[in-house]
């Protein structure tokens, strides 16, 4: 316990890195997700194909390999990256790909009838997305998007592998140093502490998400179920 307090400043500096990386990643990944998600439902085939390629590529490779690939590969194409930037970039690309699928799924969940109804009223395509489809898509998007965000927050710990002194790395250093100095390993204590910190951050995220879900529910954002006896006739 004293060990934790002694190193508190150290832990906090790592935490600062983690939170900075996490926040930037979340903002960038969400922007990319929405962009690519909208592209994937575009009326222009070229955009849809581009979005599909992007998503398939970044989704099918493990995040760790992705990170190392970007960090070591970037200098080879003439763009040396600081570890923090490399981590941010790879997490954003990966998170954006997964997030784009969530956005696309949410938009598709809204259904053609809403689109047809809005079209029949003479609304323009972008207006339909802005006023009809996207507000409703928030409901199906929010839970899985929150899951993705908590994964991204936890994935910031991977940045330690390319040299970012974020929170997990700090925990590692404290364990190694204490083991060397005092001969016994405080691994359980320190990693337990790290666990609780990540848990606290991610819990805050899910709590926030649940709050927004409830607010959306109150204003009728949950899709109206198709009426009974509804049948398609030519």
């Amino acid at each position: 316990m004293a060990l934790l307090l002694d190193n508190l400043g150290f832990f906090l500096s790592g935490l600062e890195f983690t939170i900075r990386l996490a926040l930037l990643t979340l903002v960038c990944a969400i922007v990319v997700s929405v962009l690519i998600g909208l592209m994937s439902v575009s009326q222009w085939r070229a955009l849809r194909v581009a979005a599909l390629c992007y998503v398939e590529f970044w989704r099918d490779i493990p995040l760790l390999v992705n990170l190392l690939f970007i960090y070591f590969g970037a200098p080879l194409v003439g763009v040396p990256l600081k570890p923090f930037t490399a981590a941010l970039l790879s997490l954003t690309l990966w998170g954006g790909a997964n997030g784009a699928e969530i956005v696309r799924g949410g938009i598709n969940a809204i259904g053609q009838h809403q689109f047809a109804s809005a079209t029949a009223l003479g609304l323009k395509r972008w207006e339909i997305y802005r006023y009809v489809v996207l507000p409703q898509a928030l409901m199906p998007i929010l839970p899985p998007m929150t899951g993705l965000c908590t994964t991204l927050v936890q994935a910031t710990s991977l940045a330690s592998l390319v040299g970012v002194n974020e929170f997990f790395r700090i925990a590692q250093i404290v364990v190694e140093r204490t083991t060397m100095q005092s001969g016994h390993s405080p691994a359980f204590l320190v990693y337990g502490f790290a666990l609780m910190v990540y848990f606290a951050i991610c819990s805050a995220l899910t709590w926030l998400s649940r709050y927004f879900e409830q607010r959306l529910q109150k204003t009728g954002h949950s899709a109206v179920a198709a009426p009974r006896g509804f049948k398609e006739s030519a």
């Binding site: 809403q114 109804s117 029949a120 009223l121 954002h221 009426p227």
Partner: peptide, 15 residues
Amino acid sequence: QRVGMVFQDYTLFPH
């Protein structure tokens, strides 16, 4: 804008 339509499933905007 000059041709209005009413659908079988009403499709009001639920939000």
